[in-house]
């Protein structure tokens, strides 16, 4: 993703996709000591009414975090991320994240705060898996002319 230079309310950020896999879901469970069977035991997942093992809610959060930090780069800082899981995603699903600038606010000194709306959708049917919002502190020079008071 490119560094923004003319951010305004309504600006769309480039989309990012994550191709999940059973291996990734297992490795994420291992790295976080997440022993919930729904992430590695397909038989258990079927018993719970799901078609396969599920992507962890925190892995959804990690994808959203990466989306924000990739976009923001070193000159900016992710300060807040809120997410709500709306639908499950199974391992193997391709998840796409899209972001839009909801608001731009003045920050301290030569900084500004950019509020983002984020949506993560699953590739198999286009349904929303996660709705999220984030705040990123950015250099004021990123903000389009006349946007800030």
């Amino acid at each position: 993703m490119t560094t923004p230079s003319d951010l305004r309310v309504g600006s769309a950020l480039a989309a990012q996709t994550n191709d999940t896999s059973i291996t990734q879901v297992f490795r994420y469970s291992a790295a976080t000591w997440n022993t919930h069977r729904i992430h590695y035991d397909k038989e258990y997942a079927l018993k719970e009414g799901y078609p396969d093992v599920l992507v962890q809610s925190h892995l959804h959060g990690a994808f959203l975090t990466k989306y924000c930090t990739d976009w923001a780069g070193r000159a900016a800082r992710l300060t807040d991320l809120s997410l709500r899981v709306r639908r499950f995603a199974v391992a193997g699903e391709t998840l796409s994240i899209a972001g839009t600038v909801r608001a731009v606010r003045a920050g301290e000194e030569r900084r500004a705060l950019v509020d983002l709306d984020l949506v993560e959708t699953r590739g198999s049917d286009g349904e929303t898996c996660v709705e999220a919002s984030a705040t990123v502190e950015v250099p004021r020079s990123w903000i389009g002319e006349g946007v800030l008071p």
Binding site: A31, T32, W33, N34, T35, H36, R37, I38, D41, Y44, H58, L59, G61, A62, T65, K66, T69, L78, L81
Partner: peptide, 27 residues
């Protein structure tokens, strides 16, 4: 660490013995 690393880690100890796992596998 990536920003959401701390809340992403579910267990910080050596892990519970098997008889202290719930049916769903959580400790």
């Amino acid at each position: 660490a990536p920003a959401n690393f701390l809340p992403g880690v579910i267990c910080w100890s050596e892990g519970a013995p098997y008889d202290r796992l719930r049916e769903d596998g959580t400790e």
